[in-house]
Design a protein around this nucleic acid. Structure first.
Lengths: 199, 199
DNA sequence: AAAAATATTTGACATGGCGTCAATAATTGA
DNA sequence: TCAATTATTGACGCCATGTCAAATATTTTT
């Protein structure tokens, strides 16, 4: 059979970059094809549809992103680790100029119409993964030195709350665009989560 | 001059309903025109462009929404009022079937490309208004019976945090779609904000 | 080595959306 | 009554998505 003349991964990276900058609906396959030096038809042949291409590109990004989160959460006190998580998150969707926002959030909202079921599944996994990692973090801290009673409810709920805040930040960032404010909210959230520790 | 043959407000309501259900980019002016019994050209004559029409429709909605928030925050203890706020918010973006999500958040994310500057302004105002109302609420409670020291930082930061959570909920709702979970996060947030009061 | 099989590339095409424009129609005011 | 003004209407250009058949480049088979 005839070998393909372009690298799938290259195209996915290029496509994701455009999707992230201009949104899924705001990016045409012609744009991507031109940027990637590929014929538009080849993209259809390789991926089937624009939404399918976005999905592939998104999943490639998501695994990379989750990996970097994993790394950032490395070690240190709970406060330090949570701070690192918020820092990474804010830095991630403040990257580029103008800032490009949170890809998962943007994609999810943009495709959350009748049809956009493919990304729902994928975004759910991303969020679930984040919640799981933060839950582990909290549990680990609890079984370590951190005193119980500084958390309201179970670690899972705390993690859910934290991930919710990060996604809220992704939204506010689009509205206000003020990084200092985002950091303030992040710090405040950590203070709340760590109970009296930071007051 | 010739009188127009349709009611602006009717069209805005119909348009907003479609935008909310199918997204801005997923809704065509032909759809709206058909639904409203108006020619497509008339919409361009009256509003200028699809984005401008969306903006008008959004602003009509936003003032209605802020009014209902105002009402819901009416009276009672701070906990009761915050609970009412979360309830209204969740109920709002769980309305319809399937749930239609938060219009401000969806619109903001969808149009947050290079050009979408019109809605940025409008959404910023909506969020700023929400933050201001919640700030007032907290300040009122503080000058009333509620003890100081149950809040971390100033009331403004607390309000910002709360609004951030509601927007995070709008995102998670799209991913998980589980209303019970949203309520759990809301309750948890209130518990955190009210310090030791609810523990 | 030649031919068959198979997958990719390519360009043409159909469909549908946005936005513009000139022509037409319906009022109001002089 | 007629001019001025604004709304409506339908045709048009442009661009996007997605489909299809023809052409092309390999690998495998004979």
């Amino acid at each position: 059979m005839r070998p393909r003349e372009f690298d799938h991964d290259d195209v996915l990276r290029i496509a994701f970059d455009q999707f992230w900058r201009k949104g899924v609906r705001g990016t045409s396959l012609s744009d991507i094809a031109r940027d990637a030096g590929v014929q538009r038809g080849s993209l259809y042949n390789a991926f089937g549809s624009k939404e399918a291409l976005f999905l592939c590109a998104y999943e490639r990004y998501a695994s990379e992103y989750l990996g970097s989160v994993q790394k950032a959460l490395g070690s240190g006190t709970l406060r330090k680790r949570l701070t690192a998580f918020f820092d990474l998150t804010i830095k991630n969707f403040r990257s580029g100029s103008p800032p490009r926002g949170c890809p998962t959030t943007r994609g999810l909202m943009e495709l959350a119409s009748v049809e956009g079921e493919g990304l729902d599944e994928s975004a759910r996994k991303t969020f679930a993964d984040l919640v799981a990692r933060i839950t582990d973090l909290v549990q680990e801290a609890l079984s370590g030195g951190v005193k119980r009673g500084e958390f309201n409810g179970d670690p899972g709920t705390a993690a859910l709350h934290i991930v919710t805040v990060t996604r809220g930040l992704a939204v506010l960032e689009r509205a206000f665009g003020d990084e200092a404010q985002l950091r303030k909210i992040a710090r405040h959230t950590i203070d709340l989560v760590l109970g009296g520790a930071g007051r």
